[in-house]
Nucleic acid binder design. Structure first.
Lengths: 193, 193
DNA sequence: TTGTTTATTAGACGCCATGTTGATTTTTTC
DNA sequence: GAAAAAATCAACATGGCGTCTAATAAACAA
């Protein structure tokens, strides 16, 4: 509802965000100073402090916006235990990443933020993988490891997709994700049962 | 050979390393100052600068030592395309992680370092996974994605193992790793052929 | 368009961790 | 025990940080 954000604020934040993404390609977040960022995008240092308290709070703020986009997308799809119906949702998630590729590339790259990766993993776990795992209702030791394997595997897919400059469609990536996860869980369980 | 490192240096570096691992559990590397670290381990600030230029260079130095341990272990095992023979090597890698669990926990945790994860991934890729992949010599599109899936999946195993306080043996983890990777690659290829 | 509100700018301020240096003390090593 | 090397202590200039105030510019509402 409150879509009444001043154009100047939108512009300023957008510039800062793009500048941060640019700087994070070159150096670690640790080495990026407020001074450097505002000079990169030619904005007064005071203006930065008008919106953020420091670089890390700014990064956290950006991550939160992204995270909300993900959870909103997830909430918009009906809960359905059937794997087939996960396709559109997963594809939608990849689309969101595509739309925010600059910042995602920064966050998941070499100078990225592990905390963000953790956030992403928690989101995936919350709905997508839990759903798939519910299909295989066996109480098996080591299941947590297979779970972690898939979770991090998915993050690996996203990272590779980003560094490859999004050469594949979100739909294609969603297919791949489904195949790899289902296969892994299925085979792992049948081996240990 | 050059094992003639002064006891004082060993002691100082060891303390600093342990202190850094401790601080990284609480806060991001960005927020950790030299002042804070030396106060944590009760060492003079000048002494820190005697060994490292700053926190990041120190972290890099620690990562390099760890990395060298891994590559040394890998080099000590004979090259063998048979999967079965990978067990001892993989188990050995998990053992090294176990021996350095404090710093590994820090590096792979929420406040960890993505660059270190990248290093680990490159090491795994260089020998372990490449070897397994060579068994399946089909030129298939999307193989890079399956590769990334496995690679990050392995990192996920390690992370989970660490946060679970190493409740399983390195041997057990090596078995799990092998099962998950072989299954994933095998099934993925048979589906796409 | 005009008037009002609000964001941005410019400049200045004390603050504090930084990184360095030189002299001194303590600990190893042989 | 003597020489060598590492750790300590105090002091220094530096530079980014975070804050503030007044002035300027842009956006909005009518």
């Amino acid at each position: 509802m409150p879509e009444k954000v001043d154009r100047r604020i939108r512009k300023t934040k957008s510039q800062l965000r793009a500048g941060l993404a640019r700087l994070m390609q070159k150096k670690s977040i640790n080495e990026i100073t407020v001074k450097e960022l505002v000079e990169e995008v030619d904005i007064n240092r005071s203006t930065f402090y008008l919106h953020y308290t420091d670089i890390y709070q700014m990064l956290d703020s950006i991550e939160q916006e992204l995270t909300e986009e993900f959870t909103a997308a997830i909430a918009s799809f009906p809960i359905n235990p059937l794997q087939e119906d996960s396709f559109p949702l997963i594809a939608q998630l990849f689309t969101i990443i595509e739309e925010n590729q600059d910042i995602c590339r920064a966050l998941l790259g070499t100078n990225g933020d592990m905390a963000f990766v953790t956030r992403i993993e928690e989101i995936i776990a919350e709905r997508v993988l839990k759903q798939l795992a519910s299909v295989f209702q066996k109480n098996i030791r080591d299941i947590a490891y297979a779970y972690a394997f898939c979770l991090n595997g998915c993050v690996g897919l996203i990272k590779t997709w980003l560094v490859d400059n999004l050469n594949d469609t979100p739909q294609h990536m969603a297919e791949l994700t489904n195949i790899l996860v289902v296969n892994t869980v299925h085979n792992f369980i049948s081996q240990n049962s």
